[in-house]
Design a protein around this nucleic acid. Structure first.
Lengths: 209, 209
DNA sequence: CGGCTCGTTGACAGATCGGTCAATTCCCCG
DNA sequence: CGGGGAATTGACCGATCTGTCAACGAGCCG
């Protein structure tokens, strides 16, 4: 009863790579099929359209992101928060070593590309980004409960600030061809700026390695 | 001796609008020419390619941005810094009222789209973004000289953080269809988080209206 | 008037786009 | 062996893409 072909999986994995290194609109079905070693007819046997494939690719990347975030289980809330930003930094460091440069956020890239041309795809990406922010907000609430934030810092809003910092740093790194390592550093600075004075001294190692 | 036709200007202005509301790749030469009321042959009389038009459009947006930043001349360095973020927020509030939604940053949109497919265009956008960051860094240095930043805040790095916050907030607002007004608010919070304690009380009104 | 340049016109080309489809092959199950 | 659904094949479609081109029009100068 199990599937006998892995063509569908090849398509998704190849699309995930090509959409990252080139872009959604720049990669045609023909090129994608060639790279995935499937024929065009097979592609449309598994996917009704290119946009539907994009949704599956987004879910593919989302699953990888949730796995990274979940596996980074540490103890204290502050360590958790740093683990989240470290996971993001590590993700793009991995991309950089795989592809030779910062390729951008899988969600942000697609969002910027299709937000104005494919509303259903836009909503799908927006939902993933919202879920991502929700997970960060949970951690931020824990940090807030311990009173580690400086006064006036709202956990929900800070989660949004962090999300924006992710997207902005990654976009700037992609367009200016700067190294992925700078991303983690900048993220730690943003966290540090929002902690109470003195927390840093107790906080311990913030370095990723 | 003066030009007798304004076709070129119509093309640039129409492209600036269409690239913002739709996207660079989604707008074809035919559609653009139709909207600008010029014929295709005339387009290629003024521009050797679509990519060359994009460069001119980027310069067009850049000139508008510099004008906004320069006209926001205020007195104290901290007011200058807030004027910069207010100018960005006002820009996107204007876009929102013109187009009915947040349409994204003209540079960020294009950067995300073509960074992987047109290297010369990518460099052109990167240069504008670098110039933008340089201007912000100048203001940040003035703020730092007055000792208004909390300890450990580096003016250059904070300018980069602000740039990332611009791009990230705008991208998230675009994809999640949230109002432009939130952008200014979030930017003021980022600034506040990086000032010395007590500066806020003296700083005066940070509200945009 | 003739000639010159700037600007315009719209048909055309070649490539590529996303998507379709009928025919065929493969492989499990009886 | 044979039947049938899952999967594959590759030619084909109409639309659209960027870019080309030769002919034409409008105004200026001598």
């Amino acid at each position: 009863m199990g599937r006998t072909s892995d063509a569908r999986e090849r398509i998704v994995r190849t699309a995930a790579r090509l959409f990252l290194t080139r872009s959604y609109q720049a990669v045609g079905i023909d090129e994608l099929c060639g790279a995935a070693d499937v024929h065009k007819g097979s592609f449309y046997y598994y996917f009704p359209s290119k946009a539907h494939l994009a949704r599956v690719v987004v879910d593919h990347h989302a699953a990888a992101l949730w796995a990274r975030l979940d596996s980074a289980g540490t103890e204290t809330p502050l360590q958790q928060l740093r683990a989240v930003t470290d996971a993001v930094g590590a993700m793009h460091t991995d991309f950089e070593s795989r592809f030779g440069r910062v390729v951008g956020c899988a969600f942000g890239n697609l969002a910027a590309e299709v937000a104005t041309t494919d509303d259903s795809l836009r909503e799908h990406v927006a939902a993933v980004l919202a879920e991502w922010e929700r997970r960060i907000a949970i951690v931020c609430h824990r940090v807030a409960e311990e009173g580690l934030f400086r006064p006036g810092v709202d956990p929900e809003r800070f989660a949004h600030t962090l999300m924006a910092q992710f997207q902005g740093l990654i976009l700037l790194a992609k367009v200016s061809r700067s190294p992925a390592a700078d991303i983690s550093l900048a993220l730690h600075e943003v966290i540090a700026a929002n902690l109470r004075e003195g927390v840093l001294a107790r906080g311990g190692a913030a370095r990723s390695r």
